[in-house]
Each structure stands twice: as structure tokens, then as C-alpha cells.
């Protein structure tokens, strides 16, 4: 798993190439082409319908990875905004003698404008070079997924996949009101578990030591789960504490009793009912 998408969060060029996600270098030399950086079999296929030239195939089952038929792809970019995962890019390595263009989905405000100088980033979000915006496409059909095209030095065209966001606030000075925290491995008994009734870890441990082996048993002894939220926040934690203390699996800790009202009701509402 080391260094894979599951650890890094983004694919490496090797992973993309091994999964046949990268068009051939010959195809790159012929002009703009789609690079579909989709590596996991998830149920999704809008890209297939978005391509007017039939260059993207998903087929059945729907979890198939989209296959690009590179000879059919014109690099038109219709698929970019259609990808729900924002994983399709158009790379044009023939833009000029020294520059390539990268088109990518960019759903952040403010949008850049044509001619703007930007910082181009790689898949990890690291700035790798300067770039210039050559196009911002935000037509209705994109449904609020603008596609930004930037020109960058050709040597970075396999790496650059986005631009530094323009809405990043300048870094604030580090906080000074509190010192760095050092972990104390002893679980503090005063840690709150049920915040509605302010029941602590210590209270619940005591209840379990006294023989409570169900959520209801803990509730009877401590009021955990009897407050405003009716246990929707703490019941799972209480269940886990019992399971841990008694060495039981989760299925051996039954649900707490369900009784009306499942949500708190003011007495005035109950009293106002003519039927009662």
C-alpha cells in the first residue's frame, strides 16, 4: 500500500501508466487529448455519455474503468466537466514549441481570468511552476464546473493538474493562547460521554463495574442517554465501553429501549391535545 493512491490520496504517474490511464506519447504529439485519472471501480459512467465521438467506453458493469480510445478523442473537453469525480484533464503538448496546456475542472471562487498569471500545482497540490490562464470555460452545460486551461512549460505537462486556489487566506500568525498539548495515556475519568446529562467516563465505568452490561443498565444508573438528544450522540460510545469492558462484540450489546417520545416534546403541546 506504501505510496499508492490509498496512502497518498492521489495517483502517481506510474500507477496511472500501469493502469493504462495515460495516452501514448504518439497521441500526445498529435494534439490535445483526455487523460482520465480514474483508478477505482466505482459505479459511475457520465463520461461515457458526455463524449460525442464515442471515445470513452464504460459499458457493463457500470464499475468498469472508463477506457479512452485515443484515436477517437479530439481533446474537445466535453468530458471534463461531466466527470463527477473531477478526474478528467485535457493535456495539449502541442500548444507551442515550449509550452503545453492543461485543462482541468476548477470549482472554486474567485475564478481566474484569461491572461492571469497563476501558480500551477501537481496532483499533490505542490506548486511546480508558473502558468498563464489561456481560457476559462463556464458554459451552462458545465453546470457550475468551470474548466480552466493554463499554459505551462512543456516539461511539467505530465505533473501539473490544477492551479493554486485564489481564495486561500494569507497564513495567520500562530496561535499563542495555549501551549502544545502532550498526550497523557491515562484515560481521564472526567471525560464527558453523555453531554446532555454530563455523564463522564468515570461514571459509566463505575456503572459497568456495578454490573451494568447493557446501554439500558448504564442509563438507569447514570442517566446517560436520557437528555435532549435521547442517546443519539452517546449510545454508541456507551455500547463500545461495555463491549470493551466485558470483551464482547457489538452485536452482543442490545439496543437501548425505544419508547415515545423519540424527540422531546414540550408539556404545553402534550397538554394542548384535546384527545388526552
Amino acid at each position: 500500500m506504501k505510496g499508492t493512491i490509498l496512502e497518498n490520496g492521489y495517483p502517481s504517474i506510474e500507477e496511472l501508466k500501469n493502469a493504462h490511464r495515460f495516452p501514448s506519447e504518439e497521441r500526445f504529439q498529435k494534439g490535445p487529448v483526455a487523460v482520465i485519472e480514474c483508478l477505482q471501480p466505482i459505479p459511475c459512467n457520465p463520461c461515457e455519455n458526455a463524449c460525442r465521438f464515442g471515445a470513452i467506453l464504460v459499458g457493463e458493469p457500470i464499475i468498469n474503468l472508463p477506457e479512452l480510445q485515443e484515436e477517437k478523442c479530439t481533446g474537445c473537453g466535453m468530458c471534463v466537466a461531466s466527470c463527477s469525480g473531477l478526474a478528467i484533464f485535457i493535456v495539449d503538448k502541442t500548444y507551442s514549441a515550449t509550452e503545453a496546456t492543461i485543462s482541468f475542472p476548477y470549482e472554486y471562487l474567485p475564478l481566474p481570468v484569461k491572461g492571469q498569471a497563476i501558480k500551477a500545482v501537481n496532483r499533490a497540490g505542490e506548486v511546480v511552476c508558473d502558468g498563464t490562464v489561456t481560457r476559462v470555460m463556464n458554459v451552462k452545460q458545465n453546470d457550475h464546473t468551470p474548466v480552466v486551461t493554463i499554459a505551462i512549460p512543456k516539461e511539467f505537462s505530465d505533473d501539473v493538474r490544477s492551479m493554486q486556489r485564489l481564495n486561500v487566506a494569507p497564513a495567520e500568525k500562530d496561535h499563542e493562547c495555549c501551549a502544545d498539548y502532550t498526550y497523557d495515556p491515562a484515560d481521564p475519568d472526567d471525560l464527558i460521554v453523555c453531554r446532555c446529562e454530563e455523564v463522564t467516563v468515570g461514571d459509566i465505568r463505575k456503572a459497568i463495574a456495578e454490573g451494568a452490561d447493557t446501554i439500558t443498565g448504564v442509563k438507569r444508573r447514570t442517566r446517560a442517554g436520557m437528555g435532549l438528544c435521547q442517546g443519539r450522540t452517546c449510545s454508541k460510545t456507551v455500547s463500545k465501553m461495555i463491549a470493551d469492558a466485558k470483551h464482547l462484540s457489538g452485536d452482543k450489546i442490545p439496543l437501548d429501549t425505544a419508547r415515545p417520545p423519540v424527540k422531546p416534546v414540550p408539556f404545553s403541546v402534550l397538554a394542548g391535545d384535546e384527545d388526552i
Partner: peptide, 10 residues
């Protein structure tokens, strides 16, 4: 999903 992770990585 990796496509979600990749978005925030970028």
C-alpha cells in the same frame, strides 16, 4: 473514493 481524495490533494 480516490477521486474525492485526489481533489483535495490537488
Amino acid at each position: 473514493y480516490n477521486v474525492h481524495a485526489a481533489k483535495i490533494c490537488r
